[in-house]
Design a binder for these strands. Structure first.
Length: 384
DNA sequence: CAAACCGGGATCTGCCATTTAA
DNA sequence: TTAAATGGCAGATCCCGGTTTG
């Protein structure tokens, strides 16, 4: 889950020192580490195919960042036969702008090796999940690799069938393909592995319906299928070990909000756990409190150490107690900024957390504002 | 009626390493 | 051997409002 708005695409351009020797780029004789034998015969074979000059020109005319393309998939630029024009026409036909197309090819050059028939077929498959071409275009713009990395349409078809067979509905599929499009270019075997892994976990924990379990976990966390089983397993094992969970506790956790944190990098999860434990201990919490906290609000482990500590300190400084936080950990959902603003406003009107609890911090802005207005007017009438 | 509970929605690529195919 | 295909990884929350409860 979650990541920041991805505007890091077109950055990062490094010179790449291949500026001028485009033509007949012979990169023989690089190694000082003397090749043992076959020096001559190897050297004679080394002149690799040069880059295809007319292709380069086409790409430039399309507005493609050739340097970027070269850096990413150099081999594509050496191909004799490519389909950049067909691709461009095809995507234009789907409503993609020239700018978008250029971006796509710059970031995933191999796109130009797909035939129009192939593209049409693949598009049709994607349209099984999306209602409009525009939606697909926006995803290609975001993540060209997801669409183009695999050339295996049969596999894509099988994936859709497989995911549907899990009981995921159209809405799930739609959300999955738009938020984690890579899932669909995974090999079905890989996806199956993950599903089987989840089923096994369920069975091991004494669950009675492994299929249902896998489906629940996946639809709760659509990123699961683009993670490795190794990572998910590590997270599950860690959770169990560090919280001393029984089988049934763990099973319940995973089927509930625990699923949300399964896709985290396992080192990160561990780090966050350590930091959280340290912080809570320093605040006088017992292991039992920690366990309850995580079980009732697993997303607490999603928050990085710094953010979390700042947030906690902020709440404590605002006159809220640890036990109140433990009872209502959802207040940690909100940004530190937001929490600070609210605490200030509440302080101004002399809001009593001991008397009223801290639920007021866990509401939408709209409701919070309404509440504040009401408090203000009540105060006014009382003073009259 | 307000307060509390609870679930859902946005969002997630771009790179590198390894294996497989030609 | 190169290029294609595929797997894996790091990165690191916040907010809203419908429904139930008291």
């Amino acid at each position: 889950m979650a990541s920041l708005p991805g505007i890091r695409a077109f950055l990062r351009t490094r010179p790449s020192l291949s500026g001028q020797r485009a033509l007949g780029s012979v990169r023989v004789l690089l190694t000082a580490t003397g090749p043992p034998r076959g020096f001559c015969s190897d050297a004679s074979k080394l002149p690799v195919n040069p880059e295809n000059q007319s292709l380069l020109q086409n790409l430039s005319r399309m507005g493609v960042d050739v340097n970027m393309a070269r850096r990413r998939q150099p081999g594509v630029l050496r191909r004799e036969c490519t389909n950049e024009k067909g691709l461009s026409r095809f995507l234009q036909g789907k409503g993609a702008s020239l700018r978008v197309i250029a971006g796509i090819v710059s970031r995933y050059p191999r796109a130009i090796t797909r035939s129009v028939e192939h593209l049409e077929q693949r598009w049709k498959l994607w349209r099984n999940v999306f209602q409009t071409d525009a939606q697909i275009v926006s995803i290609l713009d975001r993540s060209p690799e997801s669409f183009f990395r695999s050339s295996d349409n049969g596999n894509l078809e099988k994936n859709i069938a497989f995911l549907t067979s899990l009981g995921l509905n159209g809405k799930d599929l739609h959300r999955m393909l738009s938020t984690a499009p890579r899932t669909f270019s995974n090999s079905v075997e890989l996806n199956k592995q993950m599903v089987e892994f989840l089923e096994d976990v369920c069975a091991e924990l004494g669950g009675s319906n492994p299929e249902q379990f896998a489906k629940t976990v996946i639809s709760r966390n659509l990123y699961i299928l683009i993670r490795s089983t190794r990572r998910v397993r590590a997270n599950i094992d860690n959770l169990r070990a560090s919280l001393h969970l029984s089988d049934s506790e763990l099973l319940a956790l995973l089927q509930g909000h625990g699923a949300d944190i399964l896709d985290l990098s396992s080192e990160y999860l561990k780090k966050n756990f350590r930091s959280l434990r340290q912080k809570m201990t320093s605040l006088g919490c017992k292991e039992e409190d920690l366990k309850k906290l995580i079980i009732s609000y697993p997303m607490v482990l999603y928050i990085g150490p710094e953010t979390l500590n700042t947030k906690l300190d902020c709440l404590l400084k605002g006159g809220i107690t640890v036990s109140q936080i433990l009872k209502k950990p959802k207040v940690l959902d909100y940004s530190t900024q937001n929490i600070m603003e609210r605490l200030q406003e509440l302080q101004r009107v002399g809001y009593d957390f001991h008397k009223n609890g801290i639920n007021i911090l866990d509401t939408s802005r709209k409701r919070f504002v309404a509440k504040m207005e009401k408090l203000a007017s009540e105060e006014g009438t009382q003073q009259l």
